[in-house]
Design a protein around this nucleic acid. Structure first.
Lengths: 249, 249
DNA sequence: CCCGAACGTGCACGTTCAGGCACAAGCGTG
DNA sequence: CACGCTTGTGCCTGAACGTGCACGTTCGGG
């Protein structure tokens, strides 16, 4: 393994996990502890990471649009995103919803993956701007500030002109009977258009969203191909009974 | 095997695997190590790959990315943005271009200002998401990764359906005779649509952009209502002589 | 306060590099 | 055809680089 390649791997790892431990890198990279330390020292000198005893942390606190929500249970969102990746393997055209989990997924899209990603979320678009092969299409519309997604007729209209292989939704609420629901009417409209435009629908739902219901319907459970969740087995069983494929994070 | 053919193979290999190792290329191409190193050196000089000890990695995305430009002379950009604010006072509907200077302007828009802002730049949209009164409309389209703006038919089309009071362009090049020009064809197309859609046109240009010309025409100087710049008096005089209102930052 | 883990430094070894030189093949010119 | 020029290649040598090991030092939790 080339030196610089190894250092890139370290930075990638740091970006994904939010930290790196020297001892773990020894195993991962299959080099001596000395080399790891030298790498960390060098990267730190370049300002690319913040060196601490035993490992390193990201140099500037992970910058990005909505850092507040991003800080909320980041490791669970990361796990969800990671678990959802295999579901996208064959897809050429992917629709990505807004939300922090979807943004996490965008950041983790393998660099060698060539595909077209449609999204209505500026943070997702920015995350994908550094991806070397993805073609990114932003769906225009009025910006919903709290959610940082575009909504409205223009967004829905743009989705009507697309056939995607898969849509990934970071859902607000997911209930075995009520299906996928959202807090905002306009967001639900757009999400519904996404479901209609895609062949498969993947729903990302952290445990706290399972079994809850919000006012606006996005999709019946029958429209959802896979649910990716870290919920407990009871909730998962309910979903599976309803005929949905569940992926455990 | 011909020299160029061999180098092509190296690049192919690099694209495929994400890296090439000098020692492996010796076997693959059946030439001496020296020749491989010479090839790598030459390709590196052409900017087609990134040479490292023991092999090569893909050349990093051409510098001048959004994140890098952000750090470039921030105080001058802030001054320009501040100086441009009074020009927007009466405007209800504002078109904001991409670029770091425009993003700075978005951040400085007074919180009590109620207006509608149209932009094709996700970073600008995110900056405005924290603004309490601005209605933000994002123009959809394909994302130009380096510039972090959307371009293409969809973007231009959306602009055709709008009448704005003023468009603010963070210009690439501004020349007393050639007018406003841009480096990217597609960006120029969108900027031109912005100019057409707006009653007034404000161009933001740091000193280093005055007197320069880029390949793609955005607007004649006659179409520009005001230029905001921190350039020297000589350059400013030239512009004023051409009939443009100049605001000094 | 103590002890183990993490750290920096100096050193040795093998690998990789750059530049100089020689040789051969392709090329245009007289 | 002979000639010299250019280009591409391989080999050589000294220098630079990257890595692992050994040693003594510092750090931080119990």
């Amino acid at each position: 393994m080339l030196t610089e390649e190894r250092r890139r791997t370290i930075l990638e790892r740091l970006d994904q996990d939010g930290k790196v431990v020297a001892a773990e890198l020894v195993d991962l990279l299959d080099v001596s502890e000395d080399t790891v330390r030298r790498d960390l020292r060098e990267l730190s000198a370049q300002g690319l990471l913040h060196r601490v005893h035993g490992g390193a942390l990201p140099s500037p606190p992970p910058l990005g649009g909505f850092a507040e929500r991003l800080a909320l249970a980041p490791e669970r969102k990361a796990a969800l995103a990671e678990a959802a990746l295999p579901l996208l393997e064959g897809a050429d055209v992917i629709i990505l919803d807004g939300g922090t989990t979807a943004a996490e997924l965008a950041r983790r899209l393998p660099r060698e993956r060539a595909c077209t990603v449609l999204t209505n979320a500026p943070p997702v678009a920015i995350a994908l701007a550094s991806h070397p092969r993805a073609e990114v299409v932003l769906l225009g519309g009025r910006l919903l500030k709290r959610e940082q997604v575009t909504v409205g007729a223009a967004t829905v209209d743009a989705l009507r002109r697309v056939r995607a292989d898969v849509a990934v939704l970071g859902v607000c609420s997911l209930h075995p009977e009520a299906g996928v629901t959202a807090l905002e009417r306009e967001e639900a409209e757009v999400d519904r258009a996404m479901v209609d435009a895609a062949g498969e629908v993947v729903a990302l739902a952290t445990a706290d969203k399972l079994g809850t219901v919000s006012p606006w319907l996005v999709a019946d459970l029958a429209d959802v191909t896979h649910v990716v969740t870290d919920g407990d087995e009871a909730a998962i069983a309910q979903l599976e009974q309803a005929g949905v494929g569940v992926v455990r994070a």
